[in-house]
């Protein structure tokens, strides 16, 4: 068990270093600005920059419900793809049975995909 986690130590270290550096990049300029006296906030400086216009509405806007269908379809095929990884690395052991099992699984979703396509679920305009 220990060996599995230990293989990921470099990533952990990398994440630690990245976190440290990115924090430094954010905090250092602020600290320097305050220390040197250049820190003089005003309304104009603090407001958002929108191509020179004054900001006139909330940036959050309502999405079309059609995004939902796209997202759901994406999740389904994402999961399908996730099942492919263990299959690919163990294909040598599981042989034809395993190969056919995956083909059956893929066929289920492929026909589902054909259904979605024909129904026009992938059309936008």
């Amino acid at each position: 068990m220990a060996s599995v986690a230990a293989q990921y130590l470099p990533i952990l270290l990398f994440l630690g270093v990245a976190l440290l550096l990115s924090t430094a990049f954010v905090v250092l300029p602020i600290a320097v600005a305050r220390l040197t006296g250049a820190h003089k906030p005003s309304t104009d400086k603090l407001s958002e920059y929108e191509c020179g216009f004054p900001a006139f509405e909330d940036s959050r806007m309502q999405f079309d419900v059609r995004f939902y269908l796209v997202a759901i379809l994406f999740i389904i095929f994402d999961l399908e793809a996730a099942f492919l990884y263990p299959w690919a690395v163990s294909l040598r052991e599981i042989g034809w049975t395993g190969w056919l099992a995956m083909m059956g699984f893929l066929a289920e979703l492929l026909l589902g995909f054909a259904y979605a396509w024909k129904k026009g679920a992938l059309e936008w305009e």
Binding site: E108, L111, G112, A114, Y115, K118, K119
Partner: peptide, 10 residues
């Protein structure tokens, strides 16, 4: 069910 699903689409 899968065959009928395709029939439903077409």
């Amino acid at each position: 069910a899968i065959a009928l699903m395709l029939a439903a689409a077409w």
